[in-house]
């Protein structure tokens, strides 16, 4: 049976402040993918995720998410942004954060029993049910990480997009985290942006290197020192 294509970028160009960030990008993501995206800083990795999510608009080219436009298709995406935009002093509990993914389109949203059950299921799947009433500022780095992954999962997505989920976390937590992702990958596609190639290449099935104008996709078992050099400097 053929693998189903869920996200497709065709000849995508993106520029910001007259600087070209992405040039002629072609990329397909499939339903069972575990894709690692690597590349130098400022190379456009985050922009790529935001284009898929419809948070940024391409200058040229076509992006399809589940056969729809990014804004329509993103309902089926679970997203974990970089932590730098989050205010960790915000007074909110872990359970409240996870429920936010169920707010959706409605201005006057009341959480239903199904919403609460979905949030509970997502929190339990990450083994942090005991933390549900803790506030954000009371959680450790690794715990925060799991809460935000639970939020990304609570809208029952078909693909998870994670933007540098592991910065500032120690090796042990990183390893644990990738094990969770591997488990999740049995059901949904995973796309993870990471600057630590060592860890991502151990778990991802495929690696894509984004460096402004070029994308290279290689199978993970092909990675060796020479290839990395090629990826970064090609």
């Amino acid at each position: 049976m053929a693998r189903k294509e869920i996200i497709k970028l065709e000849n995508v160009f993106f520029s910001y402040n007259n600087e070209e960030f992405l040039k002629n990008i072609n990329l397909s993501i499939y339903e069972d993918d575990f894709l690692g995206i690597i590349g130098p800083n400022g190379g456009g990795k985050t922009s790529l995720l935001k284009l898929i999510l419809g948070l940024l608009k391409p200058k040229k080219g076509k992006i399809q998410v589940f056969g729809k436009t990014p804004k329509e298709g993103r309902e089926s995406i679970g997203y974990l942004s970089q932590f730098k935009n989050i205010d960790f002093d915000f007074p909110i509990t872990a359970f409240e954060i996870v429920l936010l993914s169920r707010v959706g389109k409605k201005l006057f949203k009341r959480h239903s029993i199904q919403d609460k059950e979905a949030a509970e299921k997502a929190i339990k799947s990450l083994g942090i049910w005991h933390l549900k009433n803790k506030t954000l500022s009371e959680l450790s780095g690794g715990e925060k990480q799991r809460v935000f992954v639970a939020r990304a999962l609570a809208n029952e997505p078909k693909v998870l997009l994670l933007d540098e989920p592991l910065s500032n976390l120690d090796m042990h937590i990183q390893e644990e985290f990738y094990k969770i992702l591997k488990q999740l990958n049995k059901k949904i596609a995973i796309v993870v942006v990471d600057h630590d190639l060592g860890m991502v290449s151990k778990y991802a099935k495929e690696i894509v290197c984004i460096n402004k104008c070029k994308t290279h996709a290689i199978k993970c078992h092909d990675i060796n020192r020479l290839k990395i050099k090629e990826l970064y400097y090609a």
Binding site: E75, I97, L100, V103, F108, R110
Partner: peptide
């Protein structure tokens, strides 16, 4: 009436946008 959408947008505008919450209206 808008407690939940207010909370979502106040906490994380970008994420709310990916969930198609009406961020500008909120």
């Amino acid at each position: 009436l808008t407690f939940n959408s207010f909370l979502s947008v106040a906490f994380d505008e970008e994420y709310s946008e990916t969930r198609n919450t009406p961020v500008t209206l909120v």
